[in-house]
């Protein structure tokens, strides 16, 4: 099953490589990984989506914790949280109308961010499952490119421990 793990790390040279290297050297999977600075520039937060059975996820969390530059590891999978992902989807315009695709995008609260004679690029935001659904839907039109951020997540206020 998929797990969403939020990792607070030192914002230092080489930390991303240490985290990514941990996953590759121990054979864990990364479905997505996002990273960015927090309000304090000394820290970065990573949101990692990984999959594995309970035992593997337990090891993933322990191993992440073991890294010297890791401040805190939180597993958001089973606690109430908000999450979102951003994607750009560039769709081929050959043989169908622009408005047809724009109509579909509106249903998904997407918006056109780049329009050309041959293609249309839609920005779409939401849960990864929503983005997957949109991509499936427009596949028959011909997708030229997809860029996804991977999801970011934060626990709801009631779940924040000190």
């Amino acid at each position: 099953m998929l797990s969403t793990i939020s990792v607070l790390v030192e914002n230092k040279f080489g930390v991303l490589a240490k985290v990514a290297g941990l996953f590759s050297s121990r054979g864990y999977n990364i479905k997505s990984l996002t990273v960015g600075e927090t309000e304090d520039p000394n820290f970065s937060r990573m949101t990692i989506v990984t999959h594995g059975d309970e035992k593997i996820i337990e090891q993933v969390k322990k191993q992440l914790n073991k890294l010297i530059d890791t401040i805190k590891v939180s597993d958001l999978t089973h606690i109430d949280h908000v999450e979102t992902e951003l994607a750009f989807v560039r769709i081929n315009l050959k043989g169908h109308s622009r408005s047809e695709i724009l109509d579909l995008s509106h249903v998904f609260e997407g918006r056109a961010v780049d329009v050309g004679p041959r293609s249309l690029c839609v920005e779409i935001k939401g849960k990864p499952s929503k983005i997957n659904a949109f991509i499936e839907l427009v596949k028959p039109y011909g997708i030229i490119d997809v860029t996804r951020t991977g999801k970011i997540a934060i626990p709801r206020e009631m779940n924040i421990s000190d």
């Binding site: 040279f13 080489g14 490589a17 240490k18 290297g21 941990l22 050297s25 010297i68």
Partner: peptide, 16 residues
Amino acid sequence: MVGITRPITKHNFLVK
């Protein structure tokens, strides 16, 4: 060297 030894050290540093 920091890259090579990442999986075989407890921790490593490049002094910048």
